[in-house]
């Protein structure tokens, strides 16, 4: 049994230690907001945070998590109150929506580390996240909008 801290809660997994975190989250713990896209770390749909850092959960084995604090899309804010979620809704980013949990987690991690990224930095940070509906222009716009919201909140 492996103990995990997910979204501030202590949870335990019975999966074998080499199981990709993605499948533990989705199919064992039934936190299905994290999506399976490629299983190879090349699409970004399964992005979660470990200690605030965006990682591809399909590439992280259960045994590698250790005491790391995991945040999934469900933990970012369940009622969409995180600035990135707010910006995503305001700019109406999602189309089919399947990749968006990963996009949002990637963006949230970027902004936590760099509160005012340039266009180029946004492009680079988000380039590993595929969106087949190609909502890219609105993703980039929403990252900027979220950065602005975070600044406003800080200054308020």
């Amino acid at each position: 049994m492996t103990n995990l801290t997910i979204n501030g809660r202590s949870l335990a997994s019975d999966s074998p230690p080499d199981t990709p975190l993605l499948w533990v989250l989705r199919e064992e713990l039934r936190m299905t907001g994290t999506r399976f896209g490629c299983g190879l770390g090349v699409c970004g749909a399964c992005t979660v945070h470990i200690n605030g850092q965006a990682v591809r959960s399909c590439q992280v084995k259960l045994e590698q998590v250790g005491t790391g604090a995991i945040t999934t899309i469900e933990g970012l804010h369940p009622s969409n109150a995180h600035p990135v979620q707010k910006a995503w809704i305001e700019i109406q980013v999602p189309q089919c929506g399947y990749c968006q949990s990963g996009q949002i987690m990637q963006a949230a991690s970027l902004l936590a580390q760099n509160p005012s990224p340039s266009d180029k930095q946004i492009q680079e940070a988000m380039n590993g996240n595929l969106c087949r509906c190609a909502t890219y222009p609105r993703i980039a716009g929403a990252v900027k909008r979220a950065a602005q919201m975070m600044k406003e909140k800080k200054n308020a």
């Binding site: 936190m31 979620q85 809704i89 968006q100």
Partner: peptide, 21 residues
């Protein structure tokens, strides 16, 4: 008007077929 299916797609609550148990 904002799309009615969007809020569930930003907090992980949207249900795709793979999410059934």
């Amino acid at each position: 008007v904002p799309a009615l299916d969007i809020p569930a797609k930003t907090n992980g609550s949207a249900k795709y077929a793979m999410d059934v148990f």
